[in-house]
Each structure stands twice: as structure tokens, then as C-alpha cells.
Design a protein around this nucleic acid. Sequence first.
RNA 1: GUGCCUGUAGCUCAAUGGCAGAGUGCUUCACUGUGGAUGAAGAUGUUGAGGGUUCGACCCCCUCCAGGCACCCCA
Length: 417
Amino acid sequence: MKNVVKSVKGTRDFYPDEMARRTWLVEKLKSASEAFGYQRYEGPCLETIDLYAAKSGEELVKEQAFVFEDRGGDPITLRPELTPTLARMVANQQNELVFPLRWWAFGPFWRYERPQKGRTREFYQWNIDLIGSDAVQADAELLAVAANFLKLVGLKSEMVQVLVNDRRLMDRKLTEIGINPQTKPELLRMIDRIDKQPADVWEKNVTALGLDGVQIDAIKSLLSNTQLWKESEELSQLFEYVNALGVGEYIRYEPKIIRGLDYYTGLVFEAHDVKGEFRAILGGGHYANLVGDVGGQPLPGVGFAMGDVVIMLVLEAYGLLPSDLSYPGTVFVTVFSEEMLVESIRLATELRENGFHVILAEPDKLARQFKLADRLGVKFALVLGPDELANETIVGKDLRTFEQHSIPRKEIGSFFG
RNA sequence: GUGCCUGUAGCUCAAUGGCAGAGUGCUUCACUGUGGAUGAAGAUGUUGAGGGUUCGACCCCCUCCAGGCACCCCA
């Protein structure tokens, strides 16, 4: 490798093939969003540090945000998440917007982390929120959007599952076990990590929080109780609704799902591949107060976020990424010889005027031109040589089937129709 | 931010202190109006970067860079 200037750590180049896959992904999540009436919005990538001030105690902003000074010396943050931006946008027009809002976005985000599989420093994220409703119905709708998206990209419920829990239920159960309120937040974080730590280490850590053996056993049985949801009226309703929404097979109760973010107050959920090979595909939940921190009237809502990295890894692992995205409808016009170049230019121009995407070759051996068309991934090629010129025909070839037809020049527009 | 692993041709990987290789891909030809195959020939490297040890370093040592695993965090 020569001394090519390096790219920034944790960033990715999207060559046309990868860009085509990202565009494909956006189309899928756009479809899933719009099927439920969600509207696209976007905020700035640059924000003041003040926007995140309310959450400045959290690691996400304090440790993981890119912060730098602009030329005037003011601190600027590359957005590490969209929720504060969304909160500001909603608060700004709180009296004019029609609630409940159904909004979605897709754009770049930055977090200063150590890159590894499924985690980069610059990534794209789909955010979708329903704001202004506390109904269980709203929670069920977001789960349905997520499940429908997974279905839309070809992921079956045997491959991926959306695991759900409710923080209110967990809070109630912890109270029953006799956990005092001060210990709960830290204990919930421990529960979130129970599968990541060796059993003895986990028990030691929980004991350090002041729990006795009886309480630890109670928590363990709590976390293995997949029927616990029956003790929650909200979750019982939720499962009824997601069944009616036709996505019941994708949604499963999992008492270990807690989520790290503090602002979730009810439903919490994560989508995972069933084999557990990858990080969470998407994650979200219900929050009681979206805009209070930025100066608006408190509003509840539910939403989730999905990064582009993990979902693409999962789709690749299951062979679900489309392979023929490079030139779906493009026609390749060969140039038989220098003498025929002008005729070929005319043909290409005529096709473009009829709405086709056309790549015009340069004069060369036909074999080389066909090889080029093949390697480009084009599906159709045209040959216009002296014989065709005399007959007023064009030879059209389907590069996938190797079928070739002579077409009257006048009917060329309908050949690919 | 912490610990560990890895880095050789476009890609996947050999070579373990002694002349940098294979497969695949690429280029050309067999084929002067046709890309999947076959055969033949050919090209491709600052062995991630810099320094050190050595007669001699892909190999051993140090620093840096990158990405992978586990933490942390989370999409």
C-alpha cells in the first residue's frame, strides 16, 4: 500500500456497492415507518454542548461525544444521539404541532468509542418516535414498526426476536423483594449485565450492593421467570395488541432486558439475533418526559433507534443483502467501431430521452466491451454494427440469460419495458 | 478509557532469523461481431508505519497507527 492519506479512525468509506446497500436499507426502514404514518424529519449534526447539559452526568455525552471549539471559541458537539435534538424541536413548536407526533429520521451520529465489530465512531441511525401518548397501544405500535421492518428485510422470527420488559413491573418486584429505592438504579444496571459477567463475580457485585442471599435468590428466580409479564396489566395488554398487529411471533418477554438509558420509565425493548452472535440490532422504550429538560411541557412517548452497522452484519450473515443493486435498470450501449461511434451516441441519446439510464462504451473489441458490461453488473447490452445499421435493427442482449434478439430500431424503447 | 490478540499481493492466507510464495482476482493471447468455461503467458509487495538488536529481520524488542475480542458504554 502506498502512502495514501488515512481516513479518520472508526469511519467508513461507502463505495458505490456499499452505498447502494445503505440506500436499500433506508428504503426499507422508510417503508416500515411510512406504513404507520410516520413522517421524516432531520436535525443538525452540530449542536451546542448546552443541549446535552441536562444529561451531562451521563457517560454518553461526557465521555463519548466529539466536542471541539468552533473558530469563535464556542464548544460544539457532534451529535451522539438524536433524542435531545428531537426534544428541542418538539419544545420549540409545542403549541403548533399535532399530537401524537409520529416522526422518524435517518442520519449520521458520532461517538468517541473504541471501534470493534458492530461499533464504529461514525455511524448511521434510524430513530423513530411516537410522542404525546401514554397508551399501551402506542408502545405496541412501535414494536409493530420494528417487527415489520425486520420482516420487510427478510429476517424471520426464527432469526431475530424483539425482547421486551417493563421497568414499572421490575420496580414493583424489586420492592416486593425488599430492595430499598436508593439501591434500585444500580441493581437494575447489574441485572442488565447479568449475562455478561461470570456468575460468581455477579453475585459478589450484587452482594456489595447490600443484598443478602435470600434476596439474590429471589432476583435470580425473577430473572428466569418468563411468565412474569402476566403480573403486569400493561404487558398483558401489549401482547394482546401485538398479536392483533400480526407480529406476535417476533415479540418475546425477557425479564433481563432493562436498558442502560435512565430516561425509560415503562416499556423497554431490544431486538437481537436469536443465536446471540451480534450486538443488539435496535433498542428503545417508553419515556415519561421527553421535553421537560429543554424547557417544554412534559410529554410522554415511545421510540427506538437502530444503527446501520449491526443490522447490516446480521443481514449479511443470513444472506439477505441484495446483490444486484449496482445497475438495476441501466442499458450498456456498445460501440462497434470508430466509424459507428456517432450512430451509437445517437442511439444512447434516444434511449436517455425515453427515460433509460445509459452507459456508452468506447470503441474497442466487442469481447472487451461485453466483459466490461459484465463486470459493471449491467443487465442489458446493445450492439449496433454495420449489419444492424443496414437493417435498421439493434441487437439487444440480456447479460444474465445470454439471450439475444434482433429488434427493429423503431421498437427499441419497448424492448426493456 | 483498561486488558489481550492480529496486521504479508486487490481478496483469502503460507513462509519463524537466511533469495517473499500459493490460491483467487487482474492484464494479454488462443477468439478480427459477443461477457459465465478451458488452456497459455504476464504483472502485481516500502511484509501497517517508524526505530532498535543482528553479518542478516515478515519473524526478536520498543513506539505509533489500524481493527478484532473482552471490559466500559451502547446503535
